[in-house]
Amino acid sequence: MIEIIGIFLLCLTVITAIGVVRTTSLFAAVMLMGIFSLLMAAAFILLDAADVALTEAAVGAGISTVLMLSALALTGDRREKPSNRPRVLSLIVVVITAGTIFYATFDKPALGDPKAPIHQHVTPEYFAMTRQLIDIPNVVTAVLASFRGYDTFGEVLVVFTAGIGVLFLLGTGPTTRRRRQLSSARGLKHHQPLRIGGKVVIPFIILFAFYVQFHGEYSPGGGFQAGAIFAAAVILYGLLEGERRGLAVLPPQFLLYMSAGGALLFGGVGVACMLLGGNFLDYNVLANDSVTAQQLGILIIELGVGVTVAGVLLAIYHAFAARGVQ
């Protein structure tokens, strides 16, 4: 039964994807993309990936839609002009590539096959090591923050670098003087139902973000999800109350400190481990008991991840929003 639901969901994602490509209205394409992400998140749940589904729902269906709409508002284009690219040629290329990959899928292990290579070496080892060395219920968090800490540190730096890139291209938002000039009539202030409904929800979204952040070792969650959810709450506030009050909550300067500070905290834990005689990001030396030390290290670096992700996403959003005012 569950397989049928899975296939049904995947059929819907394919249909939505075709819709995104075929529609000439850019607005419709962006909204369909949000639906696509939500369907994808549901499919991830069925594939036992709760953490990934949470991330996809917060980032793909939430923040990415807002960013796309801000970009559309800035470019002013609502409708796509007809393309003059050779369609038949592209179609031939696509069909040949599809045929090649399709042929390759017959060599893949079947979905859920316990004998598949992935379930033979790496996975049992991660479970055994998590149980022995870290002892936290969420193995995804253990692998993310401890066993693959280098990898995660790299990803955080990529997020930080992308944020810096956006700020270089669009500017860091209005200065304090300009901010005062922003009209207070902006936002959705005159839509009372939206405004009141939104205001009721925002505190709970922020509470949920903190729960996801600090309970990430025991339930789905962690710094990446919490940062995205927190950013979504502040973005919602900015949308409802206007850009000026949104900026007053967390000023652009503070967001820059957040983006850099989180990454520094992550790297700082690594350096602290080295100073205490261990390897980079080897948390064992942080406390007397190595299991407690691992849990402490994971808690701190997850906080660093969360702060950086929230800071970068908010800085990016304000960069887009402020560009429209100038």
Partner: peptide, 16 residues
């Protein structure tokens, strides 16, 4: 858990 870890970070990098 391994592919989930890889993809979780990739989604956030993807939005950036």
């Amino acid at each position: 858990p391994l592919p989930q870890v890889l993809i979780l970070t990739a989604i956030v990098v993807g939005i950036s």
